[in-house]
């Protein structure tokens, strides 16, 4: 055995030797040791065995069995974003969970539309409520009722005058027409004029 070159020196070099990455000078040191030392030859055999564990992984990915499918249109999307000035530095803004791939953005489209619809519906409700509030009468007198009632009172008075009938405190027709306007108590006094 080459006593000038110990197993402890040889073992860490064996991987690089098997990889073909050892310099000729170092390989020249290792080779005679391997010829003499069966223990180090076993290490080299282990190294070759290890390589046989990795080859199937490469092949499985290359064959597609263990590959990650690239989403359709990925390259076009990335190129478009790159040319649009996206620097791909979302990480510096510290938020990977809210932004990202268009696949995820597309996945969030439905919830976004639903949220938008909900907000629009709420806004429409508020608007309708506001319009209703604005159009509510602010006093007991309803302008529309008054305008509708006045001519009736005048017509009744005119009819009574023509018929020579003394004006009654409350004409039934007028009362009915006032009733028809709704259950608003004070309203009833108007035709009495």
């Amino acid at each position: 055995m080459n006593m000038e070159f110990s197993c402890q020196e040889a073992v860490p070099m064996i991987g690089a030797y098997l990889d073909g990455e050892l310099s000729p000078a170092r390989a020249a040191l290792l080779r005679p040791h391997l010829l003499e030392c069966s223990a180090c030859r076993n290490v080299a055999a282990d190294g070759r065995s290890l390589q046989r564990w990795f080859a199937p992984l490469r092949e499985s990915v290359e064959s597609g069995a263990l590959a990650v499918a690239v989403p359709a249109g990925f390259s076009a999307r990335v190129a478009r974003r790159a040319l649009a000035g996206d620097r791909g530095e979302r990480g510096h803004r510290g938020d990977w969970t809210e932004r990202g791939a268009s696949a995820r953005e597309e996945g969030r489209l439905l919830p976004f539309v639903l949220r938008l619809t909900a907000v629009a519906a709420a806004a429409a409700l508020l608007l309708a409520f506001g319009v209703q509030l604005a159009s509510r009468p602010q006093s007991a007198h309803l302008a529309a009722d008054d305008r509708a009632a006045l001519p009736l009172v005048q017509i009744q008075s005119e009819l009574d005058r023509l018929n020579g009938v003394a004006p009654t405190p409350a004409a039934p027709a007028t009362e009915e027409s006032a009733e028809a306007l709704g259950p608003r108590g004070k309203k009833r006094s108007h035709p009495a004029r």
Partner: peptide, 11 residues
């Protein structure tokens, strides 16, 4: 994975 690869190409 898609996020990381996308950012890789953008960078």
């Amino acid at each position: 994975i898609e996020d990381i690869v996308q950012d890789t190409f953008l960078k």
